[in-house]
């Protein structure tokens, strides 16, 4: 899928709840269709983020591991 990343959010080193709070805030500042890249190291994000996308209606385009222990998520705003 083709997309251009509008903003990158670095949450490395942060633990719950900071990654989800920062993500929710960053998404608020985007317009519909914009794509955000989030990078983090908290294992909790792996279950919290997809659930949140599900409920908030935003689309999780991609999720994966960049390197050991560093996760990357691509989210498109509703």
């Amino acid at each position: 899928m083709d997309y251009t990343i509008k903003e990158t959010l670095d949450c490395k080193g942060l633990s719950c709840p900071m990654p989800m709070m920062k993500l929710a805030k960053a998404m608020k500042g985007l317009s519909s269709g914009d794509v955000l890249e989030m990078i983090g190291t908290d294992p909790g994000t792996k279950s919290d983020l997809p659930k949140w996308c599900d409920k908030s209606g935003n689309t999780l385009l991609e999720e994966g591991e960049v390197e050991g222990g560093v996760f990357r998520f691509i989210i498109q705003k509703k």
């Binding site: 670095d10 080193g13 920062k22 190291t41 390197e67 050991g68 222990g69 560093v70």
Partner: peptide, 15 residues
């Protein structure tokens, strides 16, 4: 809540 952070001893799922 921003600034330098470090992640040590992490491993990827295959290794």
């Amino acid at each position: 809540s921003t600034g330098k952070s470090f992640t040590l001893l992490a491993v990827s799922s295959e290794k």
